[in-house]
Simulated assay, not measured.
Amino acid sequence: MYVVKSPLSDADLKAVADALQGALVDLIDLSLVAKQVHWNVVGPRFRSIHLQLDEVVDSARLHSDAVAERASTLGVSPDGRAATVAAKSGIGATPEGWVKDTDAVKTLVDALGAVITRMRERVATTADPDPVSQDILIGITADLEKHHWMFQAENG
């Protein structure tokens, strides 16, 4: 079996690996939540919210790949399996069935807020042990905060 040697100490690697794994889980779940709502949103603002949801899906998928590849680079096997995501995500339950446009916005504001809170903790956790991973997490957090702002603006 091939194992990648990490440039980090064992203790630092554990902290960074946990941060990256947590980010991966939250980003995968965020993409799933946004896509579920995308398929089911209804109401007068359907089109704009439908399109905006796909932007979140695309961002979350892109960022989850960057996080998983950073973990692999450090010698940590990323775990994006459905059971892992379901057990470890910080995002609450997603509405079932059709979702009124105003409820869709609230769902995304809440989901993004939960992920951002956890991402900011991960930014702090990775500051000393691995500024490279921290930089990746900072960029992701900035992008998520932009989406969060845009969905909050939907509520007027």
Rank of each mutant, 00 (worst) to 15 (best):
M1L: 11
K5D: 15
L8T: 02
L8A: 04
S9Q: 08
A11S: 10
D12N: 14
K14I: 05
A15K: 13
V16F: 13
D18Y: 06
D18M: 06
Q21C: 11
G22Y: 10
A23D: 15
D26I: 00
L27F: 02
I28Q: 14
I28K: 12
D29G: 02
L30E: 02
V33C: 12
V33E: 06
K35E: 05
Q36Y: 05
Q36D: 14
H38M: 01
N40R: 05
N40M: 02
V41Q: 02
V42I: 11
V42K: 15
R45N: 12
F46N: 12
S48W: 08
I49L: 15
I49N: 06
H50I: 11
H50K: 07
H50L: 09
L51C: 07
L51S: 13
L51G: 10
Q52I: 04
Q52E: 14
V56W: 03
V56I: 15
V56A: 14
D58S: 14
S59E: 15
S59Y: 11
L62R: 14
H63G: 04
H63I: 09
S64Y: 14
A66C: 12
V67D: 02
R70K: 08
A71V: 11
T73D: 06
T73I: 02
T73K: 00
L74R: 01
G75F: 03
S77Y: 05
P78S: 05
D79P: 04
A82M: 13
A82W: 08
A83Y: 08
T84F: 03
T84I: 12
V85E: 09
V85P: 06
A87L: 10
A87T: 08
G92S: 11
T94P: 05
E96Y: 10
W98R: 14
K100Y: 12
D101W: 10
D103P: 02
A104D: 02
V105W: 02
L108W: 10
A111G: 05
G113Q: 09
V115R: 01
T117A: 10
T117C: 06
R118G: 06
R118I: 03
M119W: 04
M119F: 13
R122I: 00
R122T: 01
A127R: 12
D128I: 01
P129A: 01
P129C: 02
D130N: 06
D130Q: 02
S133Y: 06
Q134Y: 03
L137K: 04
I138H: 07
G139H: 11
G139L: 15
E145R: 08
K146F: 14
Q152I: 02
Q152F: 01
A153P: 00
E154T: 01
E154N: 06
N155D: 07
G156C: 11
